[in-house]
């Protein structure tokens, strides 16, 4: 057991004991950062930003909409990377982290859809438009649901990790395809990427600064919940092992 020595590479954290020890102090720090940054970003955005001359006060929804949409996609990318690590290097913490990330990503997708609908109502006059971005988020949500359902349907942990990883890889390709399909299928009402660098469409710093803070806050929320969820999964796994051992001795 080499757990006394200093970790020499990132892969050392594939060791669950080391991961637990690291996340033990990292989790409170990240959680505190998440609360502080999100609170600053949202309070700044809600109370201290001017109304947009066209969109009125609805522009304030952006401080929820964009960060949650960002994390909805990034959570899936993180699951993809974790699944690859599991498939290639068989690091169990990685598979458990992917499992823990899925519900978080699903809720982020839901928040993005909800804020989008509430924002779309006054701006486009409809709660839901079959504009390319909305359906592709709905499909992303369905992918999350399927992934979570597959995890919970399989009893054997190793099998579940393998199958969900394969699903995640295939699903990523098809999610990307669906996105292009949706863009092909309808040119929409949705504005393009809000932070694009094209001159003229750029946002004012009065909005950009709190938006960046809120985005950082949402990233930290994700990391904190991910750490907490992974710790729970590792504990659940340890419990399963202990119970199995008990049964063996009985």
């Amino acid at each position: 057991m080499t757990s006394r020595s200093q970790p020499s590479s990132l892969w050392e954290y594939a060791n669950p004991v080391r991961f637990m020890r690291l996340s033990d102090w990292l989790l409170p720090v990240v959680a505190l950062g998440a609360v502080v940054l999100t609170a600053i970003g949202l309070i700044w955005g809600f109370f201290l930003t001017p109304d947009d001359f066209r969109q009125g006060s609805t522009v304030k929804i952006i401080f929820l909409h964009v960060p949650s949409a960002l994390m909805a996609i990034n959570a899936w990318i993180m699951m993809l990377v974790a699944s690859l690590i599991w498939l290639i290097r068989r690091h169990h913490v990685s598979a458990l982290a992917a499992k823990a990330a899925a519900p978080i990503g699903a809720v982020m997708t839901l928040i993005a859809l909800f804020t989008g609908a509430v924002w779309g109502q006054p701006m486009w006059g409809t709660w839901w438009a079959w504009d390319p971005r909305l359906p592709s988020f709905l499909i992303l949500f369905l992918f999350y649901l399927g992934y979570i359902a597959l995890w919970s349907a399989i009893d054997d942990a190793d099998t579940a990790a393998d199958l969900t990883s394969v699903l995640c890889l295939v699903g990523s390709v098809f999610a990307l395809l669906s996105r292009y399909a949706a863009f092909f299928w309808s040119q929409g009402l949705h504005q393009g990427a809000s932070l694009s660098l094209q001159p003229g469409t750029r946002m004012d710093w009065a909005y950009k600064a709190p938006l960046y803070v809120a985005m950082a806050g949402f990233v930290l929320i994700f990391v904190a919940l991910l750490l907490a969820g992974t710790r729970t999964e590792i504990r659940a796994r340890r419990m399963k092992a202990l119970i199995a051992r008990e049964r063996m001795q009985a």
Binding site: T58, I111, P122
Partner: peptide, 26 residues
């Protein structure tokens, strides 16, 4: 919040509730 007070506050309240539910569940 002007005309859109309901929408904006609904977005904030709803999203924060969903986040809180997620945190509570975890």
């Amino acid at each position: 919040l002007g005309r859109y007070a309901l929408e904006v506050s609904a977005a904030y309240v709803g999203s924060l509730a969903m986040l809180a539910a997620l945190v509570g569940w975890v």
